[in-house]
Design a protein around this nucleic acid. Structure first.
Lengths: 330, 330
DNA sequence: CTGAAAGCGCTAACAA
DNA sequence: TTGTTAGCGCTTTCAG
């Protein structure tokens, strides 16, 4: 079943069939209809290899997914799914590359023309893949922002603004003593962009508002202990910002155990939230939108001149029932 | 940079370069060396599209990942990663298909010769994709076992045996009244193979051993409540089998709150366990091995005659500190 | 053990 | 608006 079979069946030339499929030149309505009818009468599907050989386009893009212990897997999956969905909307498929393959994977898919572009997730501030990407002559988009964005296209949530927005919300309510519960320590140690920037935004805003503020890296396993310590050691603490999805549930439980069910202590959640905490005041991670944007930007780079740019999405704070003016001893 | 450039550089014909790369005919050591040297002197990489056009092999396989709310995402990710890793070891790449695309995705990648085979995860007892797969003339392997395995190649953990092994372990220790904490109810409703079979294995073994046994679908959000109910309503209950990863932590905490820290109540965990519960008695899900097996079987089907077969891996129970002979009132 | 050459199925000039 | 045709870069007969 080849293009020439379709052409014969429709009584046109192979190139006409090709043009009907690609839309790269105008075709009379009658011809188009005849061709399309033949295509689905015969169940024709173009051979992807032949197409990529002739057109120098594979209609596939590569997605590099992170694989670390400390990345929150459901978030990674949300990104991956949104990238696949968006890619399909642009008539592309997605090849899965794992972090583990490192630069070799990028060289392979680029060198053999398997993909038209790459999307890289979980970018670190000093990311070893960035120089590889620059050397590769393959369109790419990063989800995340490294230190040096020269000649790079990046999309991300404006995490600094997100961290700050949480502080401002609490400060506006009158809180004067707050704490930031962050990602596991290893995430900061490897200088993951989003974690660093959130913390920086938190600290800057707290300084600006004159709020007493501390920050605490946190593991899910240590969440209950941390909550207990905060309640014990920080009697004036009235607000908590939690930037750690899997620790959220144990933290809330521990607070409840100490009689500090929100908004007794105010809690703002930041990140990709599980169902069942919908009522919290929060800044959500727009993973679907980020994935879709990344794909859209990549498509622009694939068939257009390069527009290096950094896109930061504005955070939206959603008011829930977990924050309120502080309840103070005085 | 094409194969003819390499050929010229090495002073041989293009076909010789091709044969050096594919190993499909014998080449003298000197020639081989010269060719390989030229290849990496020039940094040559074969064009994937050209190769797939000429050889009718894409060296890519498709992986259909589940996307449901009720699948435990980290488990799905473990499978995906192990499939990618194993595929790479067989010189294949992996194209990501989402459940959402349904049969259309399978038709597309098969019809356009994008992939040499498919691996399908999260198979249901009556799975709509199975007839599609049968009609497709594309080698496939299922991770999971549907009701009708005619002409299918499947791999899975022997979940029935796993459920039974947990019962036998507790019965051997002397427990006479146990409960099974299962997956969310929706997982049984859509008749997911592994969940059904585990429960069936549990029930059969309990009957065989004459142990009083009940089973309880469970959501992570309801885990604490369930634990409290079991403690309250089942005074003679001494053993628990937990087949629900995300509910494990809240269950254990709730047991502890009621003074029933294992092995005060014996607990056997079944599934993909998070780090930090390593000391539990458990049957682990060998996701890496299953992924690798699936790929190996697929490779066999791709370049060999069909060998439909169902491979069930033996469960291994790992003895930890969460089980002990029952502490009874008598 | 090695070469020559005929495609694989499609796209995109070029021509009409 | 449509057709003709020369490749795209590789694999694999067929010949030697």
């Amino acid at each position: 079943m080849r293009i020439s079979d379709v052409a014969r069946h429709a009584g046109v030339s192979p190139s006409t069939v090709s043009y009907v499929l690609s839309g790269k030149r105008s075709i009379s309505d009658t011809t188009r209809r005849r061709v399309l009818d033949s295509i689905d009468a015969l169940g024709y599907r173009p051979h992807a290899g032949a197409r990529s050989l002739a057109s120098r386009r594979s209609n596939v893009l590569a997605l590099v997914v992170p694989l670390r212990e400390d990345v929150h897997v459901p978030v990674a999956m949300r990104f991956a799914v949104s990238v696949v969905t968006a890619a399909r909307a642009h008539d592309h498929d997605v090849l899965l590359l794992t972090q583990g393959e490192g630069p070799a994977g990028l060289h392979r898919v680029a060198g053999s023309a398997m993909v038209d572009g790459v999307i890289v997730m979980d970018v670190e501030t000093e990311d070893a893949r960035v120089p590889v990407l620059r050397s590769l002559d393959l369109p790419s988009v990063l989800i995340g922002v490294p230190a040096d964005t020269e000649a790079l296209t990046c999309v991300d949530l404006d995490f600094a603004a997100a961290g700050a927005a949480c502080v401002h919300h609490l400060a506006d309510l009158g809180h004067r003593d707050i704490a930031f519960v962050g990602q596991p320590a290893s995430v900061y140690e490897r200088r993951t962009g989003f974690a660093e920037r959130t913390l920086a935004g938190f600290e800057a805003a707290a300084r600006e508002r004159g709020v007493r503020a501390t920050s605490h890296p946190c593991d899910p396993a240590a969440a209950r202990t941390l909550a207990a310590e905060l309640v014990r050691d920080r009697p004036d603490l009235t607000g908590l910002i939690v930037h750690n999805e899997p620790s959220l549930a144990p933290l809330l439980e521990a607070l409840a155990d100490h009689g500090r069910t929100p908004p007794e202590t105010s809690v703002v959640a930041l990140g990709s939230l599980p169902p069942g905490v919908a009522e919290l005041t929060r800044v959500e991670l727009p993973a679907e939108e980020l994935g879709a944007r990344a794909v859209a930007l990549l498509m622009d780079r694939i068939d257009g001149p390069e527009h290096p740019e950094v896109t930061l999405l504005e955070p939206r704070i959603i008011l829930g029932e977990s924050t309120a003016p502080p309840v103070r001893p005085d």
